[in-house]
Each structure stands twice: as structure tokens, then as C-alpha cells.
């Protein structure tokens, strides 16, 4: 974390992200689901009003959850509680911080509130996680103060292809930055729309200065193992759990698959007893304007 070395507050935010590594963060809409997630071994829960598959199905404006429900979830589980605010909606973020939420997800899954600016995350004591599809987007969010990055995937589809695309894109762009000559840095930073300091960091270390998790479309233990092997440090599972026929068993199996992601025998064993996964959605069947991943800039 050399570039933010003097910033204790930022180190404490990234510190919590470090504690969540190698784990599964599960979307929940009420205290009962949160308890199921905690019992299954989740490292954190994400409180939201409707899971992404339902937001996709029912449309309308998706907003921050009701504070009462968030509070009930916080009172029910001892693991960290995350919650989503709309992109650019700093007042929702203030409410979440006031509630004592442990991590705020400035999320494209909710309807954006600002078509130009994201939240200035440096102003908050609570850490933020933000989505990205490519390296430039990740570095802009980090420049705004995000303490954790997650690749976006396409939420609510149960289809892993977009998550894979985004993770591969970020990783291969970081490899490219590593090969840049010194004189190429300024113009590359200009083209990517990112601060030069962050590009210098990537060139030196070959990794993001904050943990990099995966989200959007993970539905099975093998999906989770795939994302971990591609370079994710933890996974977010949204609709995949509570849209399946056996949430508790599936949640537990995905946790096992993340812990032992590089051991196919264990992933196989964890998958054996599961029933049907959530029904998936083919990306090409989604009308252009309804893709969630395009939100955020």
C-alpha cells in the first residue's frame, strides 16, 4: 500500500477488506436469510431490498434498503454487514454510515442517482466497494477512495460469462501495464483516464492496491472456484443462493468451493448433494438497455 502509506484511515478500511479474503459475501434481503448465510459460513452479508434477479424481473427504481431491515440484519449476525447505495447518491451513503454499516457498496445493481459523478469516498469513515469491468474503471474508483474492488459481471443472471470477461480484462490489462516503458506512462494514464500514480503502482506490483473480488453471475461451487482461479480474492454471490432450490446447502457448498478452490475433488464433493441451481439467463437475450454492467463511468 505504498501509495497510501501515510493514510491510516485508508489502511484501516483496506484492513477489513483483507479480513474478508478467501470468503463468500452473500446477498440477503432480511434477517432470516442473513442467519442462513452466517450459518453456512459467509464472511459477510450484503443487505439489499430485492436481490438482483428480482430487480431485473420487476424493474422500477432500485434504491438503498430500508434502514429498519438493515438494523435487524445487523442485530442478527456477528459477521460484517454491507449495504448498497446508488451510484453518486452520497446521502444514501451517509445514512448507511450513520447506521454503522461495515462496508458500503456503491452499486450498479441499484438505479444510478448521478450520471456523471460517483460518491467522494474519501469523505467517509466507512469503507466502500465499487464494481468495475476493466482496469481504468477500477483505478478511477480507487482514486475516489474505494477500499475494495469487485468485477461487475452481469448481476441477477446466474450466467458467469460476464464475470469471467471482466476479471480476465482487468488481469490482462495489469499485465500490459507491467510491460510499459517509463515514457509511456503519462499518455497511457491519459488514455485510460486514471491518475499516473496508480498506474505506476500497477507497473511495479502487477496488482491492484486494494483487494479484488468477483461478483455478478456466480451460481455454483464450480463458478466460485473458476473466479478464484482466475485471480479473484473472494466472491460475492447474489441471486445464486436464494434463487436456488436449496439456499442453505448451496451457500455452504460455495463457501467450501472458495476455501478449496484449487482442489477439484473437494469442489466435486461439495457440489454432489445440491439440487437445481437458479435458472440462468443468456446475455444475448437481455435487451441492450437492460444490461446492468454499463452503469458506472
Amino acid at each position: 500500500m505504498e501509495i497510501f502509506k501515510g493514510d491510516k484511515q485508508f489502511q484501516i478500511k483496506v484492513g477489513l477488506a483483507e479480513m474478508l479474503k478467501g470468503g463468500v459475501i452473500m446477498d440477503v434481503t432480511n434477517a432470516e436469510q442473513a442467519k442462513i448465510a452466517e450459518d453456512a459460513g459467509a464472511v459477510a452479508v450484503m443487505a439489499l431490498e430485492r436481490i438482483p434477479a428480482d430487480i431485473r424481473a420487476h424493474g422500477g427504481v432500485a434504491r438503498m434498503s430500508n434502514p429498519k431491515v438493515i438494523r435487524e440484519i445487523m442485530d442478527t449476525v456477528s459477521i460484517p454487514v454491507m449495504a448498497k447505495c446508488r451510484i453518486g447518491h452520497f446521502a444514501e451513503a451517509q445514512v448507511l454510515e450513520a447506521l454503522g454499516v461495515d462496508f458500503i457498496d456503491e452499486s450498479e445493481v441499484l438505479t444510478p442517482a448521478d450520471e456523471r459523478y460517483h460518491v467522494d469516498k474519501w469523505k467517509f469513515k466507512a469503507p466502500f466497494v465499487c464494481g468495475c469491468r476493466e482496469l481504468g474503471e477500477a483505478l478511477r474508483r480507487i482514486a475516489e477512495g474505494a477500499a475494495m474492488i469487485r468485477t461487475k459481471g452481469e448481476a441477477g443472471t446466474g450466467n458467469i460469462i460476464e464475470a469471467v470477461r471482466h476479471m480476465r480484462t482487468v488481469i490482462s490489462e495489469m499485465k500490459r501495464v507491467r510491460t510499459l516503458a517509463e515514457e509511456e506512462l503519462i499518455i497511457t494514464a491519459k488514455e485510460m483516464g486514471v491518475p499516473v500514480d496508480l498506474l505506476v503502482f500497477i507497473r511495479k506490483k502487477g496488482k491492484l492496491p486494494v483487494p479484488n473480488f468477483a461478483a455478478g453471475g456466480i451460481a455454483t461451487p464450480a463458478d466460485a472456484s473458476l473466479m478464484m482461479q482466475l485471480g479473484a480474492e473472494s466472491v460475492f454471490v447474489g441471486s445464486g443462493i436464494f434463487k436456488s432450490e436449496d439456499p442453505a446447502e448451496r451457500a455452504g457448498a460455495i463457501v467450501t468451493a472458495v476455501t478449496h478452490y484449487d482442489n477439484p475433488d473437494i469442489v466435486a464433493k461439495a457440489s454432489e448433494k445440491l439440487r437445481e441451481a437458479m435458472p440462468g439467463l443468456e446475455i444475448s437475450q437481455i435487451p441492450e438497455g437492460q444490461l446492468i454492467q454499463g452503469r458506472g463511468w
Binding site: E18, M19, L20, K21, G22, G23, E38, D39, A40, G41, A42, V43, A44, S78, I79, P80, V255, T256, T259
Partner: peptide
């Protein structure tokens, strides 16, 4: 290490 103690104990039991 550091992490989530409930998750640790759960996974230690399973493994």
C-alpha cells in the same frame, strides 16, 4: 490469522 471467527470455526469443524 485475522478474518471472521465464526467462519473460521465453521470451516475448522468441516475440515
Amino acid at each position: 490469522p485475522g478474518g471472521e471467527s465464526t467462519t473460521f470455526m465453521n470451516l475448522m469443524e468441516r475440515t
